[in-house]
Design a protein around this nucleic acid. Structure first.
Length: 106
DNA sequence: GCTTTGACTGGAA
DNA sequence: GTTCCAGCCAAAG
């Protein structure tokens, strides 16, 4: 499940657990990450796009995600753009969409 | 076997 | 917005 998350997308602990047939068992996802190797761990975030990893590792996670064109807002991943799992494997230009130069906020 | 430990979650206050 | 609490599952002690 986790290994299937493509670059530029993220998934939440709860979604992974649910997809594994264990809704509500988000902690199992933690266990899986802790006991597995070669997984794109940085693409797993807490509900609402929050980074669950404390301290330095959390910062590294954000960096890795940023490198994959994942955008943030106030320290959270924009789940409306990068959330994965609904089955949207289509190569949708997840990241920033071109914005006209004039005016506009942020 | 029972208790503790997690990178959690959703709802209530 | 934030904090608290009970619920969740599997492995390790």
């Amino acid at each position: 499940m986790i290994a299937a998350v493509p670059r530029g997308r993220v998934i939440t602990y709860g979604q992974v657990a649910a997809a594994a047939g264990r809704p509500g068992a988000a902690r199992l996802t933690v266990w899986a990450l802790r006991h597995s190797e070669g997984l794109p761990w940085h693409r797993v975030v807490a509900a609402g796009g929050r980074i669950a990893l404390p301290g330095v590792e959390g910062r590294e996670q954000r960096l890795r995600l940023a490198i994959e064109d994942v955008t943030f807002r106030g320290g959270r991943v924009r789940m409306d753009l990068h959330d994965w799992s609904p089955g949207r494997r289509g190569p949708r230009p997840v990241g920033v969409r071109p914005r006209r130069a004039s005016g506009s906020r942020r």
